[in-house]
Every structure is written in structure tokens, then in C-alpha cells.
Design a protein around this nucleic acid. Structure first.
Length: 882
RNA sequence: GGGCGAUUAGCUCAGGGGGAGAGCGCUUGCCUUACAAGCAAGAUGUCGUAGGUUCAAAUCCUACAUCGCCCACCA
């Protein structure tokens, strides 16, 4: 009776919360070390604590959840370890913005108070995204939730820093770095986004000292000329040969600077003469290093000109100064021309401000020694990318890697565990607070004010979350983790760094496989972004269509590594599918044997039962294979097709007459098979759409164990029933043909028509015999057709002669004549090829001289071709010889 | 400048050496006791262009074109 209470439309909002609570509180997501089971572990890419769930997260976490739920059902110790990232710049900026509203800056509060504010902000808002992940259905082991700045992770960060420092792989130095004047911190090379920007190329004359001539240089940044300390030309450049070693007078400044030769100067670009500003250009910095040039710093940390730029310019904003310099040059007649130029300009990935290269003292990680093992690991296949092509991108980056700048001028983050003695200048790296200098005993020691790049702690995530630097059972059991699922946008930021850190500290890769997915684009194919305002909020979607619909939409039609367009039609398609499943289940539940007798002896099964069970095996096979190959979209699609096109459209319809009008035995058999297949389907679909399947399961298996812990259906290709599949396949074709006749040709009841079956006669008779009932049922009203079913065109003609007016060749809804021609051609080519192979094999010279494997290959080919020829000839026979 | 991906039905996309696929949209007919978020029947494609390999190419190879992405110190 309760079955009747199931509404005809599935209402996700009424069940999702209930089931999530049931799973979480029931401890169904919990996993620990279990030597009886195989470990399967995914460490979640930690979303920013400041974050709100966006479509990218939804996709990433859906894929992970599908894999985890699948492996859990397969009986693995499936651990999905969640957590969040402290997101240095992002979080600090968020809290600073809050302070700004109160009219304060972090400096007003001071470091300690400010950090307190950030922590309380984190306590208050930091769990937001994890709550949103729950709504998506993410089956993480929340008891193990971690944070990149919790005690354990902080311990790991310190330990790694100190060990790298001891190994000489971390050093401090003055280098030119990418400075963001807005965020007021240095950022690493990969945090700089190069954007093509429309700019100008200014041609400026530099007078040669004591001579009446000039060198004309070209620059996009005239304001930096105030810091020039040389002009460089290519030594092979004939135009400038005699100038090398001469001195030019820097306009506006009056400084005398040398003309030097450097082989890296392009002769083609601009005038071939390059102004050298070591303090404000990475390239010039290197030239400066090679030639021992002084660096004159003319721009400060706020992007303003320094006193060294000269009184006229000091204090000006860099853009203001550019205009001023150009005006001044023009006034002095030193500006030759200005050209338009589109060139790549570095922007801050966070705030989009134009990066200012500055010389600054920072901490770096020496990358070459760390990169090498990471390259080897990929080359040797110890870590495998899916899709494969991302291996190349990863390798290319590591092969050309430069040292990693890891210090950040922020307060929120892992503070660099280094102290400096202001008396003797000693640098002390330590895991503990240092109060006095171990060298001179001075108490005037101060910790480095900077913190580490956020990605430094993320790089340790796969082992810091499992208890490193302790030697935990978790580490032994779950490390290396099974797979990393992430977007291709953070291969460098994160994936590569985890790999080299894992290799450096765990002596093994952090994960065996990296499953890369693309971006979620909007309906027009654009990146979803806040500034465009084209983002779709996953929570809105969950509220309107349910989490299962969102998940299913994200998984289907998505192939590894490729972008995915979000559109509502697809979402509706997913919802409709879920509703279809819901209704098919309603049907099964309504017809369930009230006595609960489910088992039907195989003997009671009829053709359609055998058929659907066999098709079900096929679905199991495809779903399992798809999941194993990370072809989740393919797996989901196979299930979609099975549910809709086979189970609903055919089997359920074929079961109805037996349920409604059949003998008790027939009805019981149908019920049992419906129950069995639906039960299996729910398992297969559970990883993709966990809520609705668990809900249906609870009705189907009252009082039983929940679906989430049911075993995944075994892949049993041996239980397939090819005979049933073939017979049923033909019957389905017949039914479709009969319907076609009726619909297209409007056969009124009572009028006679004939179907021509393209198959050997005795088979046709058998099929017709078996399929008669089905045909009468599903092509009702056409019953008079059944008697006329016939095997050969000739007989069809006979039927026509006997007053039958319409006939349609089956399989022959295709053009029979065209088919015959095609077949003839194919047989011809196969025969030709076969003749060639047989000729070869009949040649004693070939047999005695050719290598054994070549001969074997030819023999295989012969067998294959003969089989093919036979199949083709059979088909031709079936078409009916003329 | 280098690398990668895409190009298949009106739209969004799967597939992939031998008979062109799905969803949506469209046409026609249906509220048939699971479902109108549905059922049944249909129409629609020289699979970007040009070469090559092959008995056979939408599929593999090579160029090219268009779009997109990533990397890069031509100021």
C-alpha cells in the first residue's frame, strides 16, 4: 500500500537531505586501515576556505564521488579525504576588505590581532564550502577533514622546509621577482598571467658622449629608462659594431652608461639596440648580471617612482611617469617615433594588476634536483596522466623549470621558520621559536616576517593529511593514493609540485594516476567567471533540479581533459532521465509481489526475461569498463541507454501483459526479473545519482542494508545469452516494422499486409513462433499481419498475389538493392585480399625465407579473411539471391 | 615563437579503419491503468579543406584553414 504513496514526479528536495544525514551520521563514509581490503584513496583538492562552490568544484567533486562510491561498493577500503586550503592572498584580501569597511587596515591591528581576525573569520565562514559539498552528495570521510594550516599540516610544512634547507635546496637571495603593487607581495612565475595587451613601442635617441650622434633604442616602458645602466647590442650586429665600448648619455638623467655587447639581443626587434634596466626587467637583470651592471631602482613597492628616478619624477605613479617622460623626451626632440605594439604583459593572477618586476630578497626552492625525479616518474609510468597528452605538458614545464620563489609578503600563512640575529647577522632555521642566537648569544633575534606560498603546503597535501612526518598506519596503507582528480588548470601549481615533494619525502609518487578534466564553460562556450557574471551557481541548480540531475549532467557527455559546456537543456535531460528511472521503479514497486516471493526458477523465464537479463550483463560490463578507464561519461551513457531504451521501452512493456493477464507463474517470473534488474540498475547508477537510487532502494528493499554499501554487480560476461539477444533483437525489429507500416501507411484494421523477413526460412518461422505474442501485444491492431510474416521476397510476391497489399522488407527498411551492391563490392575486395594472402602462403620461397612471425601474421590474416568472407556470404544469402 | 585541443544533424556533443550516432529542436499521431519531465512513427549530415597510407579512411599520416587553450625574458 505504501507503494501507492510514491508520487509520479520525483521530488529531490524531499529526500536528498534525509539521505545525506543518514549516510553521514551512520558513518557510511568512514574508512580506516583494513588489511582485508584493497586500499582506494583519493585526497580531495582542497578548495579555498574563502570559496563558494562553483561549477568547477561541482564537476571535480562529482567525478571523485563517482569513483569513490564505485570502489566502496566494490569492497575497497575507499577513503576520500576532504579538507580546505588557507589560500594566503585570497583569504587575507577578504579579511582586509572587511577591515577596510571599518576604516582600518591590517597595520592598524598589528600582525597578531589581524591573524586572530582571520582565524575567527575562518571559523565562521570556512565551513561554507564543505556544507555545499555535502549538498552535492560528496561521500567524504568528514571525520578526517583537514586544513592546510592545522597543527599537523603546519608541522609537515616546517619539517619539509627545514629538510630542504639542510639539503641546500632552499636558499635566500636577491633576485628580480614578480611584484604585485596591489597585493604588495611577490608572486611566483606561474602566478603571473601573460596577456596580450595593446601598447606602444617608443623609439628614443640616446646621445653618444662627446659625439654628434645618437643610438636609437626601442622600448615599451619609457619610464624605466630612468633606471637604465647600459645599452646593449648584439655583437654580430654590423650597425653597431663600432659603438660597443662607447658611452652614451642617458637623456633626462644625464648618467653616462656604456654600450655593451650581449649575444641575447635580438637584431630584428626595434632598432636592435636595447636599453638595459636591471632593476625592472627580468631579461635586463640577467644581462646586468653577466656584465656586472649596477641596478638603479626607480620604482617602489607601490608602483611609484623612487627618489632615484630624479626629483622631477619621484613620487609619480608609474603610468603617470610614463606620460611625463614621453612629454619630456618629445620636448627635447629625443623621441623619434611611437609605434603601436601588441605584446604580452604580466598581470597578477589574483587582482589583475600589471606586475612590476623588482629586485628583492626572497626565499627560493632550487628546482633542478627536485624536478628530475618527477620527470623520471612520469617517463617510467609510475605516475600516469589521463588523458595521456597531459604528460607532455607536465614534462615540458619541469624540464624548463626555474627556481620557485616561495616567500610571500603576507601575514596569513605558514610563517617562514627562520630567524635572523641582528647582532651577528646569523640566519637560523628552526622548527621551534628561537629566543637567542646560538652563535653570539644575543637575544635580538627576529623571525622572518614573510609566509610561504600557499602552494607550498598544498604540495604536501597527499602525505601531510595522512599523518606525515609521523610514520602512521594510514600512510603505510593509503600512500601512494590511487588517483588525483583535478582540472588541467593546476597541473603546474599543484600536480607537479605534489609529485616532486612526494618523491622527495615519501620516496614515492603521491598518486598513481592523475585524472584531468576540463573547465565548465557557459552555454556560449565562455569561461564562467565572476567578472562576466555568467557563472551558474551549483546550489541554485541543486535546488531547482536536484543534486542527482546536476551530477548526471556533469558526468555525461564529458570526456577526460575536455571542456564541458553547461546548458539547461542537458540538465533537463538528466532530470528527465532520473524521473524516468523513478517511474520505472514506481511501476516495479506497484507490481511487486505482496508476498515477497522474488525467486523465479530459470525455467519459468521466457525469452524477454532472458533477453533483458543478458542486456543487463552487458550494461554491467560497459559501466564497469567505463569506470575503470575513467570514461565516466561512457559508463553513464551506457546505463542511460539501458534504462531507457531497453528496460523501460521494451522489457517493462513486455512484462505488462504477463503481470495483468498472465498465469500466476508467468506473473511471478516477470516480477522476479523486474525486481532483479531494477535492483542491479540501482547499484550501477548509485555512484552517479546516489540520492534517488538510495531512495528507491529503500522502497524496494524495505528494512535491508542501504544501497551505498551494497556490492557492485559482478561483471559476468559468461552469463550473457547471445541466443536470446539475437532472437529478441529480431522480434523488436519486426515490431518496429509493423508499427511503421501502420503509422506510415495507415493500414486500417482488417486490411492485410505482409512483412518480408530477411533471414533463413526456418529461423524466421522460429522467431515468428516465439515472437507472435509480443507482436500481437505491442503492435496491437495489426494482428492480421502475423499470419503473413514470410521469409522471402518471392513469398511476399505470393502474398501480394493472394490479396495482401502492403509489405515491407525487414532489415530492408534499408534499400535492398543498394545493400546488395555494397555487399558484392565488399566480398570482392575481401576475396582479392584473401587471394593475395593465400598466394603468398602457397609460395615455398616465402615460407622458407620469411621470419616466423611474419608468416604467422599472414596465417592469422588468412583465417580472419576467410571468416569475414563467410559472414558476408551468409548475409548475401539472407538478402535473397536473385 | 613553441605546444595542445576542437572542427560530425538546425543547436550541444559522443563515437571511431569496413553498414553515419545521442540529447535537444523539428514533423505526424497519441493524456495507452510507471512516467506528457511521457509514448509511437519520422525527416535531417559530401563527419573543416587538400593530399597520402590501405583492398577499404569520418576514423591513421602530412600539410592547410578556422576557433579555443596553454607555455614563452623580442625590450
Amino acid at each position: 500500500m505504501t507503494e501507492k504513496t510514491l508520487p509520479p514526479v520525483y521530488a529531490p528536495e524531499q529526500v536528498e537531505e534525509k539521505w545525506y544525514r543518514f549516510w553521514e551520521e551512520g558513518g557510511f563514509f568512514r574508512t580506516g586501515v583494513d588489511p582485508e581490503k584493497k586500499p582506494f584513496c583519493i585526497v580531495m583538492p582542497p578548495p579555498n576556505v574563502t570559496g563558494e562552490l562553483h561549477m568547477g568544484h561541482a564537476l571535480d567533486n562529482t567525478l571523485q564521488d563517482v569513483l569513490i562510491r564505485w570502489r566502496r561498493m566494490q569492497g575497497h577500503a575507499a577513503l576520500w579525504l576532504p579538507g580546505t586550503d588557507h589560500a594566503g592572498i585570497a583569504t587575507q584580501a577578504r579579511v582586509e576588505a572587511m577591515l577596510a569597511k571599518e576604516g582600518m587596515s591590517r597595520y592598524d591591528l598589528g600582525r597578531e590581532k589581524f591573524l586572530e581576525r582571520v582565524w575567527s573569520w575562518k571559523e565562521r565562514y570556512g565551513n561554507r564550502i564543505t556544507l555545499q559539498l555535502r549538498r552535492l552528495g560528496a561521500s567524504c570521510d568528514w571525520d578526517r577533514e583537514r586544513f592546510t594550516m592545522d597543527a599537523g599540516c603546519s608541522e609537515a610544512v616546517k619539517e619539509v622546509f627545514l629538510r630542504l634547507y639542510d639539503r641546500g635546496l632552499i636558499y635566500r637571495g636577491s633576485y628580480i621577482v614578480n611584484w604585485c603593487p596591489q597585493c604588495r607581495t611577490v608572486i611566483s612565475d606561474i602566478e603571473v598571467e601573460h596577456k596580450d595587451t595593446a601598447g606602444n613601442l617608443y623609439y628614443i635617441k640616446y646621445p653618444v658622449k662627446n659625439q654628434d650622434r645618437f643610438v636609437t633604442i626601442a622600448t615599451t616602458r619609457p619610464e624605466t629608462m630612468l633606471g637604465d645602466t647600459a645599452v646593449a647590442v648584439n655583437p654580430a650586429d654590423e650597425r653597431y659594431g663600432e659603438l660597443i665600448g662607447q658611452v652614451v648619455v642617458l637623456p633626462l638623467v644625464g648618467r653616462e652608461i656604456p654600450v655593451i655587447a650581449d649575444a641575447h639581443v635580438e637584431t630584428e626587434f626595434g632598432t636592435g639596440a636595447l636599453k638595459v634596466t636591471p632593476a625592472h626587467d627580468p631579461y635586463d637583470f640577467e644581462i646586468g648580471g653577466r656584465h656586472n651592471l649596477p641596478a638603479v631602482r626607480v620604482i617602489d613597492q607601490d608602483g611609484r617612482m623612487t627618489p632615484e628616478a630624479g626629483a622631477r619624477y619621484a613620487g609619480l605613479d608609474r603610468w603617470e611617469c610614463r606620460k611625463q617622460v614621453v612629454r619630456d623626451l618629445e620636448a627635447q626632440g629625443l623621441l623619434v617615433k611611437v609605434e603601436d605594439l601588441s605584446h604580452a604583459v604580466g598581470h597578477c593572477y589574483r587582482c589583475d594588476t600589471v606586475i612590476e618586476p623588482l629586485i628583492s630578497k626572497q626565499w627560493f626552492v632550487r628546482m633542478k634536483p627536485l624536478a628530475e625525479p618527477a620527470i623520471n616518474a612520469a617517463r617510467e609510468g609510475r605516475v600516469r596522466f589521463v588523458p595521456e597528452r597531459f604528460t607532455k605538458i607536465y614534462m615540458h614545464w619541469l624540464e624548463n623549470i626555474r627556481d620557485w620563489c616561495i616567500s610571500r609578503q603576507l601575514w596569513w600563512g605558514h610563517r617562514i621558520p627562520v630567524w635572523y640575529c641582528s647582532d651577528c647577522g646569523e640566519t637560523i632555521a628552526s622548527g621551534r621559536e628561537v629566543r637567542e642566537c646560538p652563535k653570539c648569544g644575543s637575544a635580538r633575534v627576529e623571525q622572518d616576517p614573510d609566509v610561504l606560498d600557499t602552494w607550498f603546503s598544498s604540495a604536501l597535501w597527499p602525505f601531510s593529511t595522512l599523518g606525515w612526518p609521523g610514520e602512521t598506519a594510514d600512510l603505510k596503507f593509503f600512500y601512494p593514493t590511487s588517483v588525483l582528480v583535478t582540472g588541467r588548470d593546476i597541473i603546474f601549481f599543484w600536480v607537479a609540485r605534489m609529485i616532486f615533494m612526494g618523491l622527495a619525502f615519501m620516496e614515492d609518487v603521491p598518486f598513481r594516476e592523475v585524472f584531468i578534466h576540463g573547465l565548465v564553460l557557459d552555454a556560449l562556450g565562455r569561461k564562467m567567471s565572476k567578472s562576466l557574471g555568467n557563472g551558474v551557481d551549483p546550489i541554485d541548480v541543486i535546488e531547482s533540479h536536484g543534486a542527482d540531475s546536476l551530477r548526471f549532467m556533469l558526468v555525461t557527455g564529458n570526456t577526460p581533459g575536455n571542456d564541458l559546456r553547461f546548458n539547461f537543456e542537458k540538465l533537463e535531460g538528466a532530470r528527465n532521465f532520473i524521473n524516468k528511472l523513478w517511474n520505472a521503479s514506481r511501476f516495479v514497486l506497484m507490481n511487486l509481489d505482496p508476498e515477497g516471493s522474488r525467486a523465479a526458477a530459470p525455467a519459468d523465464r521466457e525469452l524477454s526475461d532472458r533477453w533483458i537479463l543478458s542486456r543487463y550483463r552487458e550494461a554491467v560490463e560497459k559501466a564497469t569498463a567505463g569506470l575503470g578507464a575513467y570514461e565516466l561519461g561512457e559508463a553513464a551513457r551506457a546505463l542511460y541507454e539501458f534504462v531507457w531504451d531497453e528496460f523501460c521501452d521494451w522489457y517493462v512493456e513486455l512484462a505488462k501483459p504477463r503481470l495483468y493477464r498472465g498465469t500466476p507463474g508467468e506473473a511471478a517470473a516477470a516480477r522476479a526479473v523486474l525486481h532483479e534488474v531494477l535492483g542491479g540498475l540501482l547499484r550501477l547508477l548509485h555512484p552517479f545519482i546516489p540520492f534517488v537510487t538510495e531512495e528507491i532502494w529503500s522502497h524496494l528493499n524495505k528494512g535491508g542494508a542501504p544501497l551505498i554499501h551494497q556490492p557492485w554487480p559482478e561483471d559476468t560476461p559468461g552469463l550473457k545469452d547471445p541466443e536470446a539477444e539475437e532472437e529478441m533483437g529480431l522480434i523488436i525489429e519486426i515490431i518496429r516494422a509493423v508499427r511503421h507500416i501502420r503509422a506510415q501507411m495507415s493500414v486500417p484494421p482488417g486490411r492485410r499486409a505482409a512483412l518480408v523477413l530477411v533471414a533463413p526460412e526456418e529461423r524466421v518461422r522460429r522467431i515468428i513462433e516465439k515472437g507472435k505474442g509480443y507482436i500481437e501485444e505491442l503492435a496491437a491492431g495489426s494482428v492480421t499481419l502475423a499470419a503473413e510474416l514470410t521469409a522471402k521476397p518471392a513469398q511476399a510476391a505470393h502474398a501480394v498475389a493472394a490479396g495482401v497489399e502492403i509489405f515491407v522488407p525487414l532489415g530492408g527498411l534499408v534499400d535492398m538493392e543498394k545493400e546488395r551492391v555494397r555487399l558484392a563490392k565488399e566480398i570482392d575486395t575481401v576475396e582479392k585480399e584473401l587471394a593475395r594472402v593465400e598466394g603468398k602462403l602457397g609460395n615455398p620461397g616465402f615460407l622458407s625465407k620469411a621470419p616466423a612471425d611474419v608468416v604467422a601474421k599472414e596465417r592469422d590474416k588468412q583465417v580472419e579473411l576467410s571468416a569475414k568472407r563467410e559472414a558476408l556470404q551468409n548475409r548475401r544469402r539472407m538478402l535473397g539471391e536473385q
